[in-house]
Amino acid sequence: MKLLALESSCDELSIAILDNGKILSNIISSQIERHKEFGGVVPELAARLHLENLDWVISSALKKAKIEIDAIDAIAYTQAPGLIGSLIVGKIIAETIAMYLNKPLIPCDHIQGHIYGASIDNEFVYPVLAMVVSGGHTQIELINSVTDYQIIGQTQDDAIGECYDKVARYLGLPYPGGPEIDRLAASGNSQIYPLPIPKTTQEFDFSYSGLKTAAINLINKIKQKGEEVDINNFAASFQDVAVKTIIQKFDLAIKKYQPKTITVAGGVSANSLIRQEIQRLGNENQVPNIIIPKMEYCTDNAAMIGKLAQELINISK
């Protein structure tokens, strides 16, 4: 079965072609440069750029896959969650292609797509415990099958990626701020600027609003004293606490649920410290399968939606 998958939930438009689960192409149109001047994603602009970039994205995907559009057997797309305008554009594109080809349409969940993106090169052994970290989500999911999953903990306010970007903006770093903080932290001392580890009522829930506020307040205090903020040390101090927050919770979840596979998913799974710490947790807890996604599958992409759709197709046979 040849599948065309489409991802358009935020500021990337991506189309992938898969043949019985094998990825033939995965084309991504990133809008980062267009949103940089605003310090973040502008929803209306993102939706408009999806339409502008559609022609070359779909033609590039088909060309790289070396197939014609008429060879497609099904179309998958991201249904939710995401920016409403971007999701609507993607839905209309997918529906139009499906109607033109008279082929079935498979709506997919964006978060589940991220999780299954980690299994593109490594099949899951269930149960799977997944840490989802992105600009809009921070949660732990227990997955028993592609249709049986449970959110056992999630952020009560800001997501980890959102916290990274807001603190980075306050430090004067360019958008997107997460990768910049990760890069600078590699040369910094994480013990220089003390920041609190956020606490929550529920065992596996998260809160990043307090960390964001504490970081901003500390930056203000330093500047009010007429001192300069050492960017590298501050980045390292902030990242140490931000990552420690999720790792401590994930460690507790591993011990409680005893999964056969652990993985990390979402845009922030590209963070070097998170990848390192997830691997360490898996080793220390003797988890049989530790899956860290390839960098190309961390950020939004259509291959992950195609992988999820293929899994849904497989169980329906």
Rank of each mutant, 00 (worst) to 15 (best):
I152A: 08
Q156S: 02
E123W: 14
G90H: 01
R34H: 15
I262Q: 09
E37N: 02
I246P: 03
Q139A: 08
I197Y: 05
F204M: 02
N122D: 14
N289I: 00
E180K: 13
I67Y: 13
D55H: 14
S316W: 13
I111K: 09
V133T: 03
V41L: 09
N53G: 04
S60G: 03
S316V: 04
N122E: 15
L51E: 14
V268N: 08
E296N: 08
G226M: 10
D205Q: 03
A61E: 09
S209R: 02
I69P: 07
E44M: 02
M1Y: 10
L3C: 07
K294M: 04
L45S: 02
I69G: 08
I292F: 11
H114M: 11
G177Q: 07
G136W: 08
I23H: 10
N233M: 08
A16S: 06
L3R: 13
R34K: 14
Y170W: 09
G267V: 05
E33D: 14
N301D: 05
I181M: 06
N289M: 00
C298N: 15
K255L: 10
A98Q: 07
Q31M: 14
Y193C: 00
G177M: 03
A65N: 10
G172Q: 10
L62K: 08
L195A: 13
Q248L: 05
I67F: 13
A71E: 15
V241E: 11
A130K: 11
L3A: 08
Q248Y: 12
S9G: 05
N314Q: 12
D148V: 01
I262E: 11
T138V: 10
I88S: 04
G226H: 14
K223W: 00
Q112Y: 07
V146W: 05
I216K: 07
N271R: 15
C108V: 09
Q139R: 03
F38I: 01
R183T: 03
I274E: 01
E52S: 12
A186M: 12
G266Y: 05
Y193H: 07
L273E: 04
E12D: 13
S269Y: 10
G117D: 02
I15W: 11
I192L: 12
S145H: 10
G40L: 01
S207Y: 07
G39S: 07
H35S: 09
K91G: 00
E180T: 09
K221P: 02
I278V: 15
K249Y: 06
Y164S: 06
S187Y: 14
S237H: 13
G306M: 02
S190D: 12
Q191P: 03
T213C: 05
V57M: 12
A98P: 09
S272N: 13
V133N: 05
K91P: 00
I67N: 10
T138P: 04
I278N: 15
V133P: 06
A253G: 06
P127A: 13
S30P: 06
E95M: 06
G172W: 12
N233V: 07
A71H: 15
M295T: 12
N233H: 15
I72C: 07
P198I: 01
L6P: 11
I32S: 09
G90Q: 02
K317P: 00
A236S: 15
I292H: 15
K64P: 10
L13F: 14
E203I: 02
F204I: 02
E284K: 15
K260N: 15
D157S: 12
I192M: 07
K294I: 02
N233Q: 12
D205K: 10
S59Q: 14
E311T: 03
K36D: 00
M99E: 11
L101W: 09
D251M: 11
E141S: 10
I84F: 06
